[in-house]
Design a protein around this nucleic acid. Sequence first.
DNA 1: ATAATATGTAACTTTTAGGTTACACAAATG
DNA 2: CATTTGTGTAACCTAAAAGTTACATATTAT
Lengths: 111, 111
Amino acid sequence: MTQPTPDIFQAIGDPSRRQILQLLSQDTLTINALAAHFEMSRPAVSKHIKILHSTGFIVIEDKGRERYCTLHRDGFQALQQWISFFDVFWQHRLKKLENLLDNTGHKSKGH
Amino acid sequence: MTQPTPDIFQAIGDPSRRQILQLLSQDTLTINALAAHFEMSRPAVSKHIKILHSTGFIVIEDKGRERYCTLHRDGFQALQQWISFFDVFWQHRLKKLENLLDNTGHKSKGH
DNA sequence: ATAATATGTAACTTTTAGGTTACACAAATG
DNA sequence: CATTTGTGTAACCTAAAAGTTACATATTAT
């Protein structure tokens, strides 16, 4: 891969990458340790990690020849932010509904 | 498409689909009205909508020959739930850090 | 009834993502 | 120093996603 995917949504779009995040929620793991959990080749896992890293879901700490992967909050927060945008929408909708019920229930200007 | 993508993560992985959700957060729109906002063909938009529908991000109400699309909460909640799993992780981490600071700061059994 | 509109679907093409193997290289190990 | 270990990367292959055009169909409008 060159670098065509610095997109948090696409990053978590892949099941393997989500599984990597799950594994890392239990433990800090090296690339090899992670790869051991998968059928696919180590380079494939390595690519996934690169994507998770570039999108802010994990941090990598080099220790000698090993690379330790740990969950990183940035990616999750970015995602949370996106959802929150829509939360506002739901709240507005709820308010609209309340007003509607208020107006039809009794046509006075309310108590 | 047959039906190989009933996956919320993949559903929002596509930028066009996210834009559709954005548009629907302003207004309930028909397929055609939505398609008008895009460069791509109407059938392409139609496919995206199908995916967003099958993953619970939108509901569709038929009115005569038109189909009105509206945001639906299910998809967003499913996504939120996934994030929440990791929220727990962060809280545990924070607690661990607190304990650590507590123990190194003063070696008594704490107040 | 005819024409126009709003849509779904099938068949096909193109693009992109995910995977593999082969190789390079630096760090640990004997 | 030779070997093993942990990793990155390039080149390539395959499969899946996204897009297109062409066509079918049901509603609405004239």
